[in-house]
Design a protein around this nucleic acid. Structure first.
Lengths: 335, 335
DNA sequence: GCCGTCACTGTTAGCGTTAACAACATTGGT
DNA sequence: ACCAATGTTGTTAACGCTAACAGTGACGGC
């Protein structure tokens, strides 16, 4: 198998030039006569020549590949992010190598990063939504271009995030504006920065409105945990508005409320987070907060590319604001 | 940036051997004295040496990377598959490079494959659920290890699939067994093999039971299209059982039925396909068919690895049977 | 007409690894 | 003690590419 394809010298021979000239054409160097360039192009096409990335990576010291470390790429958020990242990278001529990880502990993350390093990736994007990921990053070689997404805001690492706080504040405010006296919150797991950001935003909005935040209902992103929290919420007659940390939690809550005969939005209003494609078809259609994954992907890749090109490891940060998508799960409280 | 790490010669010097001996240790060759092996290992650890994948790929002609071509990795199925593939590959010491694709037409797929080829991946997995993908594969270099997932059963390419027909038959039979006279079907897009397999299975089960299949309701995987079909279904009093080609379609149907006051499962039973994690929290909890993505990933990787190692491009095929997950959305018809 | 400058092209070396072969040391059979 | 077989190590030459440098010819200013 694998009769190796033609190499640069083969193209050069056919075009009647040196392999270096072929290289120059390929890399868009100036100072190649138009006529020569055309001959080389023709030879490339005729032979079906394809440059060898490995050889190029060897001599330049880095490949046209960026590594992505992520956990649980089955969830809607991470999956969208990954897809957007890949798309953007492809436009810049980069391939994306995924190193997904079962757990976000020290060792798993380090191992994934190591794997990427030994493939000499040009840079690494870590989707690092929990505390322990940040620790793993500390002990990394300093000279690798690196960007974290949704990571620890308190660490001096280049960071791109969805503005969780703003999103949560908007969701909460939306419920307050509808006339609700207070808003309950079903949160994500407490070790995720996404969760704490959303909790903070919720709390801020409430405090700003002069209300004391009710007790937190801790969930774990899953519909199952949303359901459990929903069962408790349904039993409390004073609850009229709930903000859940993601749409799947909302789905679980919706189902629990339904079972207890509490109507949404007539009895209780619900707002989610993520805007999964099917949120518009929940019963009822879910008002939710939509993060712009494309923008996050673009920003992180840009940041990474800047590092790769400049060689500087600046510690920038950027956050992109999500937008509220209003549907039918919110109404004024009955009095 | 990027002070290049130590190379093999540095390790060799420290251990007092030749670089070739280091290479032998790294690749687990026999005929290295135990004592030497230990010295080399120590030197590797001390320097934090990491082999250079690019150099290795250059000299061996292939990298430890497998390329995956997929579309729409945001959907639950593809995302799960990708994650499972990555996991399995990592266990075998391979990295996974994704080349996701907006459209599954000729050119996009070819371009993605080309990209992988120029990175000299060891093999390629194409998640190719539509006709046009198969065509793109025809004109590929013959010498690249390749496996398709959920691709065209009629093409002579190594293929691993979820057994769509069996899954659909099971779902339909389940409804028939509950006492329904016939079963309606909301399908996926007609150019997906997944769809046609599920349609076939549905039709087969009906025919085997001696019933004429009712007209097909064509959808496109989205909850939105499920909703539209559901609106029609809800208006037809004779409909008592619906099998949808995936869970999101089912969600749309559920919502439409709900709006029309038709209760599930009392008035109409519904069965989905995929078992997305939140299916258990639909209203009502959805009976559905669960494909084993891990098994598919394992099988395809195994097949690919076999090709890589043997150099043979055999045209095997393998299909893994899904299982029915019974929940609350199915009941006997009212009479 | 001479020389520096510019545009273009070729030559050479080396990136870090593996494979092929050569060399040496050790062992065992005669 | 000698020779072959075996185990262990070193030497050399690629792999396909880019970077640095070295030509070559044409052109214009003096």
């Amino acid at each position: 198998m694998a009769v190796h394809g033609p190499a640069m010298t083969d193209v050069a021979r056919l075009a009647g030039v040196s392999h270096q000239t072929v290289s120059r054409v390929l890399n868009g160097h100036p100072n190649v006569r138009e006529q020569t360039r055309l001959r080389v192009r023709a030879a490339i096409a005729e032979l079906g020549y394809r440059p060898n990335g490995a050889a190029r990576a060897l001599v330049t010291g880095r490949s046209q590949v960026i590594g992505v470390v992520a956990q649980n790429t089955t969830l809607y958020g991470p999956a969208s992010l990954l897809a957007a990242l890949e798309q953007t990278a492809a436009e810049e001529g980069f391939a994306v190598s995924v190193g997904s990880v079962r757990n976000l502990d020290h060792r798993s993350i380090s191992a994934a990063v190591e794997r990427h390093l030994s493939h000499r990736v040009a840079g690494i994007v870590v989707i690092a939504p929990v505390e322990s990921a940040g620790e793993a990053l500390e002990r990394l070689p300093q000279d690798v271009p690196l960007v974290t997404v949704d990571g620890d805001p308190s660490r001096p690492v280049p960071l791109v995030t969805v503005d969780q706080v703003a999103g949560a504040r908007a969701a909460t405010q939306h419920l307050l504006d509808a006339g609700h006296r207070t808003v309950w919150h079903v949160s994500g797991p407490s070790d995720w920065f996404d969760s704490v950001g959303r909790i903070d935003g919720w709390r801020e909005a409430l405090l700003a409105a002069g209300t004391d935040p009710p007790p937190l209902m801790p969930g774990d992103w899953s519909a199952a945990s949303g359901y459990r929290c929903g069962q408790m919420l349904a039993r409390m007659p004073e609850v009229t508005a709930v903000f859940t940390a993601n749409d799947h939690l909302a789905l679980g809550v919706l189902r629990a409320l339904h079972e207890f005969g509490r109507r949404v939005p007539d009895d209780i209003s619900v707002v989610g987070f993520d805007d999964v494609p099917e949120a518009a078809y929940f019963i009822p259609p879910l008002t939710t907060v939509r993060p712009d994954f494309d923008a996050v992907a673009r920003a992180s890749l840009q940041m990474l590319l800047a590092q790769i090109e400049s060689g500087t490891g600046g510690a920038l940060r950027q956050s992109v604001a999500p937008t509220l998508v209003s549907r039918d799960s919110v109404a004024p409280p009955r009095r």
